[in-house]
Design a protein around this nucleic acid. Structure first.
Lengths: 193, 193, 193, 193
DNA sequence: CGATAAACGAGACGGTACGTCTGGTCTTGTG
DNA sequence: CACAAGACCAGACGTACCGTCTCGTTTATCG
């Protein structure tokens, strides 16, 4: 009968972002793993009960705070032809992932290896959106005659975006514009001689 | 001077594999995260001290047990032409990752998001090997005239293997032979129309 | 102005007695300590607010429910001579204390060690009455010439009743008729040889 | 294989006594009920685990600290004739119970209403000793011809000591020498006229 | 071959966080 | 405006592991 307190909700999300070091008064980079519910409660001036009442797990709080409330969306430009739009988008994704935001995303992917619920949540709140955008872009490429219309858009998207996630998670090379350009070039024309 | 006990070492590695559910008397699916040093010590009939003496972290034990001692290497066939060899190798990788082994690899990648030491260890014990094999295969493709010789072999390898890791980590599609074939086809001929 | 709901009051007292296991649909032996305001509220179909509005503490509710509303008074027979009346009364007290009712009384005495308010309440609602009855009985003994008229009736009452409370609280012997008789005999004639 | 730390044990018992306000740097009177394991651990500079490792409950710690380690025994003088020795002993008990020590004893009796284990422990560590001493004293009275040799020493002890516990728990009168004397007089000669 | 020094099992220890529980207060409709 | 419903802060509960630290007790060289 009593409504949920929006103040508490905001304080919890804000405290989470601060502890993760992505926004506001930045605490030095706590990882998602080391982030504790108790620390969030303390910083938010909220009791643990309140957090447990509304979220099932630490990961759920982080997804709500980071993905839903905070993470800037990378937009796809519609004023450019397909290939330029693709390079532009991949570049902006790569730039985003190169910073602190990328680290948190990597940690969320990590968490989702341990909990089916987290994986499901991450798909619902993060992944589905981004995949749809990528597929729409590929579709546009097909419409513009730049992409083979018989290909599976899903696989095409994978071919282009997967290398970015590999670098994000394995840290085996720089996430920069040149990387983005090379990937697009190779994916479009193929690597056969 | 007393030498390190090989018995203890083996017991620890064996207990670790059993707890992870990949070998021997299988405990039902403990994840790397939930796996504890205390549980390993207990099951191995060894004291915690002994584990801490020889390994820096839980992840180091798991890498030693799982990657070094246990994980079957996927071989690259030399009796097939490049493209067939690539498809064959990717298929065997995909098959391996589709089972319990893939889950543990995913969890190790997850752990490495939280610890630079684990990442470094994982590169040294797992990644470098596999990358070298992939690059050698690409190189062979260039030698056989199947791959554009001006391409960066590293990027070519990424284009082919990254989608596999994406599916492993995001579980957004089946890891099967058909997937392996499609990836190779697309990567070689490109997706441009 | 809305009057206090008699329905709520009755439901609260009834729920309290049930939870204590002394009346009605008996929940198995919750002690006063383990009894919670929330449990009472839930069982009574009443909100916690309502309980806190009318009672200061859990103990106050229990005293109201158990002592005031429920606890059967032990009557002093006037048709018997003093000594027989005393034995009869002590026997009925002892019988009452031997059962579930005695346990709750013991727990109320326990609670009163922790709160001056509860002690005061317990005196006002339980103790004063019983002491008055005991003193009146002693007085009657003096009038009948059975008790030394120079003695302090208060102390005489203590001599007779204190052993009962000792057994109630320390559980170091049975609370039965034989005990009641022995106490009266010894208190009257003394233990000197 | 590793011995229990006597340092920790002493620190825990000492901290408990201090928090109860009976010894050393006295914190203002925490009751047994309000005393928490966490507070003991904090003040003793010890982890909660260590307390839980060696004691089953808060009450067990308090009994160990207060009854076993701290509580001064009231001695029975053997250089006085029976009646004087009894009055002297009862007086010293009464004096002890009139202060802070009495409050803690009362609270332990309270706790034992809620837990059979605590009651058992309290009997074993506190009650049995004291009862034995009382019975021995009564026995001496019989030997000296001061007490009826056909009486049950247990009941005689109850007659004398029970009123003290009544006053301790009900606080319905002063615990002083005069009370002790009156009780002895009445118990010996009886209250009949 | 017996001393000796490292490796070992056992497990106590100070910590930290967990997720749960209850206390007591406060807020928001409803009747 | 009393009430139910229940959200809220506070803080203790008892548990699980962490990584460190004694302890004796094996053992495998080395003097």
């Amino acid at each position: 009968m009593v409504a949920r307190s929006e103040d508490s909700r905001q304080a919890i999300l804000q405290a989470t972002l601060e502890l993760l070091g992505v926004k506001g008064a930045q605490e030095p980079g706590t990882t998602v793993q080391r982030l504790t519910i108790e620390a969030i409660a303390k910083r938010a001036g909220v009791s643990k009960t309140t957090i447990y009442r509304w979220w099932d797990s630490k990961a759920a709080v982080v997804i709500d705070a980071f993905v839903v409330e905070y993470l800037p969306r990378t937009v796809v430009r519609t004023d450019l032809p397909f290939r330029e739009a693709l390079v532009d988008h991949l570049s902006s994704v790569v730039r985003q992932y190169a910073g602190m935001d990328g680290a948190v995303i990597a940690q969320l992917i990590a968490e989702s290896q341990y909990s089916a619920e987290t994986l499901e949540e991450l798909h619902r709140r993060f992944w589905d959106d981004r995949r749809d955008a990528a597929i729409a872009l590929v579709q546009r490429g097909m419409d513009e005659g730049a992409i083979d219309p018989t290909a599976d858009p899903n696989l095409v998207a994978s071919l282009v975006y997967a290398p970015v996630y590999q670098r994000l998670l394995f840290k085996d090379g720089p996430l920069d514009d040149s990387f983005a350009q090379s990937i697009v070039s190779m994916a479009l024309r193929g690597v056969a001689s």
